[in-house]
């Protein structure tokens, strides 16, 4: 339990609701590209450490960590997007997000960690500054992209976390991968 908490989400400041149509995003780097996710899902950001790998799982399921007594799975975003798995470096962080998904007609809350190369900052991006996702060219699946935010003359890819971290889809992939490794002749 010696993971030091680098940044914990505070209660949103009073000005948060002031500007309608303006949303706050956390930006981070992954393979030298800037990505953003809405901050409402984010619970905290912790330093990378003490990760336990789970055998027979696809590469994007990096493992599990102990988050103050709870076992939280960590997703390697880079591997999820089809690139090589993230190499752990000094600034590697785990962003803990709170996701909701349906199990047997009831909503279940689950914390998931996402592995990123480094965390940049929290930005406000007005709705007018968000372009629709391009059909191709971003090197990741189009349905993972919620939009392209215009920031300082460049673009950041705003991720649709519900799609990227869909438990249903990920566990299906895991089932297939698992069936492949465990059952097929090697």
């Amino acid at each position: 339990m010696d993971q030091s908490t680098a940044l914990v989400r505070q209660d949103p400041p009073a000005t948060f609701v002031a500007a309608p149509g303006v949303q706050q995003f956390l930006t981070f780097m992954l393979n030298a590209e800037a990505f953003a996710v809405g901050i409402l899902n984010i619970k905290e950001i912790i330093e990378y450490g003490q990760l336990t790998g789970i055998p027979l799982m696809p590469a994007f399921i990096r493992g599990v960590i102990n988050l103050r007594g709870a076992v939280v799975p960590v997703i390697d975003l880079s591997a999820r997007f089809g690139a090589r798995p993230t190499a752990v470096a000094r600034r590697t962080c785990i962003v803990i997000v709170e996701m909701h998904h349906q199990v047997d007609d009831s909503e279940v809350q689950q914390d998931i960690g996402i592995l990123v190369d480094s965390v940049n900052e929290v930005l406000e991006i007005p709705a007018g500054e968000i372009e629709p996702a391009p059909a191709f060219g971003a090197n990741i699946r189009a349905d993972f992209i919620r939009g392209m935010g215009k920031v300082a003359g460049g673009f950041v890819i705003i991720l649709d976390l519900d799609r990227v971290l869909s438990i249903t889809e990920m566990s299906q992939i895991a089932t297939l991968a698992h069936a492949g490794t465990a059952l097929a002749p090697p």
């Binding site: 789970i54 055998p55 027979l56 799982m57 399921i61 599990v64 709870a70 076992v71 799975p73 998904h101 199990v103 279940v108 689950q110 998931i112 438990i167 990920m170 566990s171 895991a174 089932t175 698992h178 465990a182």
Partner: peptide, 12 residues
């Protein structure tokens, strides 16, 4: 500690 739904296919 249960591993959660993500790992429901995990055997062993």
């Amino acid at each position: 500690k249960p591993l959660g739904h993500l790992f429901q296919s995990l055997r062993g």
